[in-house]
Amino acid sequence: MNSLKNILYAIVILLSANTVFAQQTLQPVNFHNLNQTPPSENTLAYSDTPENVNPYNMLILADSTVVQQNAINYPPIKRDYTRLGYDTAMYFGAAVISFGILYAMPESVTNWDKEAMKENGITYKWKQNVKAGPVWDHDDWVLNWVTHPYAGGIYYMTARSSGFTWFESFLYSAFMSTCFWEYGIEAFAEIPSKQDLIITPVVGSAIGEGFFYCKKSILRHDKRVLKSRFLGYTSLVLMDPFNTLLDGLGYQQKVKVQSNVSPVGFNSGTNKAIWGLNLNVQF
Rank of each mutant, 00 (worst) to 15 (best):
S98D: 11
F164K: 05
V225E: 08
F92W: 08
D139H: 05
V67D: 04
T19C: 04
Q253K: 10
Y150R: 02
L8D: 13
Q24V: 12
I97W: 12
L279Y: 11
A189L: 01
N54H: 04
A189W: 00
V130K: 04
P50L: 05
N260I: 12
T147R: 00
Q252C: 11
K223Q: 15
P192L: 01
L4P: 02
S177D: 10
W275K: 10
K118L: 14
T88C: 05
N243F: 02
G153W: 01
K216C: 10
I11P: 03
L219H: 06
G93R: 09
V146A: 10
V20C: 06
W126N: 02
I7Q: 02
G85R: 06
T158A: 02
V67P: 05
L171I: 04
I122R: 13
M105Y: 14
N35F: 06
F211E: 05
I72T: 09
K5F: 12
V29W: 05
D139N: 08
M90L: 14
F92S: 06
V12E: 14
R224L: 13
K272T: 15
S64L: 03
K114Q: 13
V53M: 07
G204V: 08
T110F: 06
G93I: 10
K118C: 09
Y233I: 12
L171R: 01
P50C: 04
I207R: 01
T25W: 04
E186C: 05
N70G: 01
Q128L: 08
T25E: 10
V109M: 02
W141Y: 12
V281H: 03
W136R: 03
Y124H: 14
I122Y: 11
Y183A: 03
V255P: 07
V96P: 09
Q69S: 14
G85A: 05
L219V: 06
S173P: 03
Q23P: 01
V203R: 00
V135N: 03
Q128G: 13
R224G: 09
D222E: 15
S40V: 10
L14K: 01
Q69L: 12
V257W: 07
V12Q: 13
W112V: 05
S64I: 03
S16K: 00
G121I: 03
V67K: 06
N271V: 11
D222G: 14
V20L: 14
K215S: 13
T110S: 04
A17K: 03
F175L: 11
G152I: 00
L143M: 10
L143A: 04
T158K: 00
Y9W: 08
A116L: 13
M117W: 09
L249H: 06
N2E: 08
E209K: 12
L44H: 06
G232S: 12
T82L: 09
A95L: 11
P75W: 00
S217C: 09
G133W: 00
M157T: 03
P149K: 02
A174H: 07
